[in-house]
């Protein structure tokens, strides 16, 4: 099954885009600032209905589905999620069960517990959201999406606030989800994460898809250099790649010295 976005014209920042995400895969959407990554994710999540295009889930237009069915299929984590009231972590996560109005309470309970365990939040479950650190809050919000147990997980910069260990654990979780046949679509700023962990990468530039495919191809040195307008070079082996920016010039090494 695929989740596809077909745009014949302009929608927000996007311009004539056609992209496909497959189940069982981790798809990364990359691109410089303002390329339309978040808009693409919002469209894929079915939250924006473009005038001259559509989002297809398994070939069926998403906007024809009922809202609650769509909500059960597609879980979406916005880039800067807000929490208006100072609810506890557990209550926050339980909001993820709202699409499953009629589910038996034992199922609800289990889904919430699984999400809490997946995001390592057992200790924090009763803590009010206002007393969480940025990373803890990000984990709680991710757990809210996981609690829905959607067929597709769409997340905008899910690693941005996480420390190394929790980012790695979340990435493992995404991989598990893909392995059991769910679709995972991530907007990623960090190209190394996309290179090492995604199965498929879509590169956007100024609202257009400029590269698409396996990471080694879609994020090749040439693409990165051209799209991000920055001389770059991949180091290391496949799966453990690191991005080195620019040739070591006097100015850059001076900067490095100051930073360390």
């Amino acid at each position: 099954m695929t989740l596809a976005l077909n745009l014949a014209g302009v929608a927000g920042r996007l311009d004539r885009v056609s992209l496909q995400c497959r189940r069982g895969m981790v798809t990364a959407i990359c691109g410089p600032n303002g390329a339309g990554k978040s808009t693409a994710l919002v469209c894929l999540a079915g939250l924006m209905l473009p005038d001259n295009g559509e989002t297809l889930l398994g070939g069926l237009p998403l906007h024809r589905q009922t809202l609650s069915r769509r909500a059960r299929w597609i879980g979406y984590l916005p880039q800067s999620p807000e929490v208006a009231w100072d609810v506890s972590v557990e209550v926050l996560i339980s909001l993820g069960r709202l699409p499953w109005k009629d589910a038996p309470s034992i199922e609800t309970r289990e889904a919430i517990e699984d999400a809490i365990a997946a995001m390592d939040l057992q200790e924090l479950r009763h803590r009010p959201v206002s007393r969480l650190s940025g990373g803890e809050r990000a984990r709680a919000l991710m757990a809210r999406v996981l609690a829905t147990q959607p067929g597709w997980l769409l997340a905008d910069e899910p690693f941005a606030a996480l420390d190394l260990a929790h980012a790695a654990s979340l990435m493992r979780h995404f991989r598990q989800q893909a392995n059991v046949g769910r679709g995972v679509v991530l907007v990623l700023h960090d190209l190394a994460t996309a290179m090492n962990h995604a199965d498929q990468v879509v590169v956007l530039e100024k609202g257009r898809v400029v590269a698409e495919g396996p990471p080694e191809i879609a994020l090749s040195r040439e693409v990165v250099t051209r799209v991000w307008n920055c001389p770059a070079r991949w180091l290391g082996e496949p799966g453990e790649r690191a991005l080195s920016l620019g040739a070591p010039s006097p100015a850059a090494s001076g900067l490095r010295g100051r930073l360390s």
Partner: peptide, 16 residues
Amino acid sequence: DAMTLGEVAAHSLGVD
């Protein structure tokens, strides 16, 4: 309740 997460997230949770 869903609006606690903001309009877009509420919409993604199936709120009309």
